[in-house]
Design a protein around this nucleic acid. Structure first.
Lengths: 140, 140
DNA sequence: ATTTAAATCATCCTTTTGGGTGATCCGTTT
DNA sequence: AAACGGATCACCCAAAAGGATGATTTAAAT
């Protein structure tokens, strides 16, 4: 940040010097005003671009990849809401029993849901289900 | 992209019109050259910033968070190389038997490694191990 | 030379998971 | 009214995973 300000100041100083020099030439050698304007335009466009980059680059680094659920795939695979809930909890590392407790249903119900889920995801283990679901952007 | 170019063209056209207008006033009303230059400077600095943002924003979105293994934590938990290998394969969704085949050792060996791993990670299931290992930046 | 840590394998036992099948209930659609 | 998809639960069985403990080998550290 400090470096940026210093560089900015240096650039300004340099430009002011350039202006003085040009002004001198303008009056002495009768340089065209279009040329004068052209220099200013190019300089400050560049300066603007530079400043724009400086002040957004660092902020942009923090822009993580946001998760967007692929509803399309979710519908294509015909995964129901309840099955998706179970998928989320499986991804959190919960056991079937813990999932059953959390959703206030029986262990058998969760087993049915997860079985159907594995069929639809074409996997045979919960760890694979989590992997595939992440690849399909069904979970973060 | 097309929109950007069109907008850029429009802005330029607008600015040229402004210039003509100012040029007119400059000669007619004897407006100070400093004011003239000020307008140009402000306009093109802004234009530069805008252009700089336009052409970097989209590229910046792809800046993902790179994975850096937390060797510190790895050593603190005293996780051996073999155990780490097993952890990686567990995270890939492989079963103990598949891991055993891949590493050319017996199923029992893998069970021992994974058990020790779970102790060190303070978890009791492989899915939790994967979760925790990701949080600890042991795996991507 | 002795200790230590890692890696290997085994045995026993329990819990968890996965696969298959069937049944009930409840809305929605036809 | 009948068909359908969803959510729910049960029972059975086999495979996988997990916990505890002990043993052997080998390489590195003391």
């Amino acid at each position: 940040m400090k470096r940026t300000i210093i560089l900015y100041g240096l650039a300004l100083a340099l430009f002011v010097s350039g202006l003085k020099f040009l002004e001198y030439r303008f009056f002495v050698r009768d340089l065209s005003i279009e040329f004068y304007i052209g220099i200013i335009v190019v300089t400050f466009t560049g300066l603007g671009i530079w400043v724009g980059l400086k002040f957004t680059r660092k902020k942009m680094v923090f822009v993580g990849p946001e998760f967007v659920l692929d509803v399309n795939t979710l519908e294509r695979l015909e995964i129901s809401k309840r099955e998706y809930e179970v998928l989320e909890l499986i991804a959190k590392g919960l056991s079937n029993q813990e999932i059953a407790d959390k959703l206030f249903v029986s262990l058998n119900t969760i087993k049915t849901h997860s079985s159907n889920l594995f069929l639809k995801l074409e996997v045979s283990r919960r760890t694979q289900a989590v992997q595939k679901a992440k690849n399909l952007r069904l979970i973060p």
